[in-house]
Amino acid sequence: MASAAIPLLFPSVRIHQHYYGDGSVNQLAPLSAPIHLGADKILIVGVDDPRPTELKPRQLHHPDLATVAGHLLDTVFTDTLNSDLERMKRVNKTVEVLQQHNIATELKPVQSLLINPSQNFNQLASENFLCFPLAIRTLLRMVGISQHSDSSLVSYLLFEQKYTRRLIDLGYQDGIHQLDAIMQFLAVAKE
């Protein structure tokens, strides 16, 4: 529950004598921990939207508070990972150049494989918006969120069984679809 305790949305969770919230909010370098623990490879399950094949239509109105809040959460959860990946690739390139010139370094290259969902979470959340209890839907409408809002906030709040099962199924199917790449990355022999 602590990993879902997004500040301002869900309260922190008490475990023994300490309170915990979502770690990604203050983890500005999410790859730092596994790298410092000695990882040679990092398999990353991301939550970034698949790249659109067509441009979004231009917004005809000023973004509302719900849209901005959703964008801020997207930034916290995906932009920090993307910048950290970019930084790791630059360090890997530096290590490669140093090795080519026989320059000793304590740095080592770290391989990564990033897997992102094949479907947009916001779209899936929109399709399951009516799973929210009526009281929650009413509260959301009061802050400007409806079933077809531009805000990704719904995808962060929707913990209803139908939606979470859909996310689990999507993750499983995406994993199966990329099984060869995952097995090759992990250097595991397929049975």
Results as ranks from 00 to 15, higher is better:
A69T: 09
K56R: 11
L60Q: 14
E54S: 08
L113A: 10
P63W: 09
L72A: 15
L73T: 05
N116I: 12
A39Q: 03
L28H: 07
A33D: 03
E86C: 13
P52K: 00
V76R: 08
V68T: 07
I35Q: 07
Q59M: 07
S118Q: 14
T94D: 05
K93V: 02
R87F: 01
Q59F: 03
N102I: 04
D74P: 04
L28T: 06
P117W: 12
D40Y: 02
N102L: 11
P57V: 10
T94F: 11
D40T: 10
T67H: 09
N122M: 10
E54D: 01
T80P: 02
D79S: 12
P57S: 09
L124A: 10
Q111A: 14
S126W: 07
K56A: 12
F77E: 05
P30T: 07
S112V: 13
K56W: 04
D84G: 09
I42Q: 04
S112H: 15
V97Q: 04
H101F: 13
D79L: 12
I42P: 06
R90S: 14
E86K: 13
L98I: 03
E86Q: 13
D79W: 09
A39N: 03
L73A: 04
N120M: 11
R90T: 06
T105A: 03
P117I: 12
I42F: 06
D49L: 05
L60M: 11
N102H: 15
R87E: 07
L43N: 03
D48H: 08
R90G: 02
Q111G: 06
E86A: 14
T78Q: 12
L65Y: 00
Q119N: 11
N92R: 06
E86P: 00
V45P: 00
V68H: 00
K108L: 06
K93P: 02
R87H: 08
L81R: 06
P34F: 00
A104H: 13
P30R: 04
L28E: 04
V76D: 11
L43E: 05
H101A: 15
Q123V: 15
A104P: 08
L81W: 09
V76Y: 13
R51W: 05
L85V: 11
V97K: 09
P109L: 03
E96A: 14
G46N: 09
D49M: 06
A104W: 05
H62D: 06
L113M: 11
N82Y: 09
K56T: 04
A39S: 14
Q100D: 15
N92Q: 05
T78N: 15
V47G: 10
N102G: 05
V95D: 01
V110L: 08
H101L: 15
S112T: 15
Q123E: 14
L81D: 02
H61Y: 07
F121Q: 04
A33C: 01
N116T: 15
L55Q: 09
H61C: 02
L37E: 07
A33P: 00
P117R: 15
R87P: 00
E127N: 14
L81M: 11
P30H: 03
L31G: 00
D84L: 03
T105W: 04
S118F: 07
L113F: 09
I115D: 08
H61R: 10
S126E: 11
D64K: 10
E96V: 01
V76C: 13
V91A: 13
T94P: 00
G70P: 12
N82H: 14
L98M: 13
N92Y: 03
T94Q: 10
A33W: 02
H36W: 02
